[in-house]
Nucleic acid binder design. Sequence first.
DNA 1: ACTCAGGTACTGC
DNA 2: GCAGTACCTGAG
Length: 301
Amino acid sequence: MAAVSFWRNEMEEDGYVTALSTEDDFDLDMIFDCGQCFRWNAGPDGSWTGVAMGHPARAWREGNSVYIKSDAKNLKPLWEDYFDMGRDYAAARESVCVDGYMTAAAGAGRGIRILNQDRWETLCSFIISQCNNIPRIKTIIETLCGNFGEKRRLEGEDYYTFPDAGTVASLTEEDLAIIRCGYRAPYILGAARAVSAGELDLDALARGDEETARRALTRLKGVGEKVANCVILFSLRIPGAFPRDVWINRALREHYPDGIDTTVFGDNAGLAQQYMYVYRRREGLSNRRKNAGNTGPKTGG
DNA sequence: ACTCAGGTACTGC
DNA sequence: GCAGTACCTGAG
């Protein structure tokens, strides 16, 4: 792999490199491709580029280390936090293997970590995600950032930060038309106004319990249980949240017809959900026709 | 020209 | 509570 070429010194003329030493449960492909984030993209050399927590970055693996090149000094604490380095994922993964199905799912998803993402970005991104496909979600978010975020530079390229809630709150639906997000536009503006006005204090919710957070989040128009649970899991650091999307519901229906009490996973429920998601989705994508016709409402006619 | 996509709000029971 | 339906848009 040509990844070595990104690494020369701790401080380079075009970026600053952070090294994270890892064990087995750290797989960049899994982490960035398991549906929890939308702004990282794989390059032809196996490295990933994206913008997180206001910083452009390139991430790649060499042996037992993951390197992150970014645009500022002293970002090691930030990246350690973002990649959830304080949690023992090997132990967490073992603990969710409660039966054959979960053992298989966890095996397939080994290497996933739950990112600790920016709260407003996560809320806004998952509002956009509703009833939408992933390529389009990414396009909409990049357009939002390109038009209303701040420009950053790395390796001679332009990157754009996610616009903060105050910036988005100052926009009109007309301004937002450029991102082509359809009926979600008023949802985004409403959420931005609530956050920037302090009516919805995401940092405070992170200090409280899951149910309180869910009630506060679902008060927003356009935020239901699914989006709220994604925000809770991926940005409020409440690891027991269990977002149920169409793929999870399929997996649950097929493997737990009598239902499953997700509290058996305890604080690892969110991780269990991610394992199930990638496992079921992998199968589903290669067997699309099997699932065609039995999902979603029909207009009949 | 179609269906469908990591949902949610609204209506009518 | 639960079923039925509309909703912007564009990728496949």
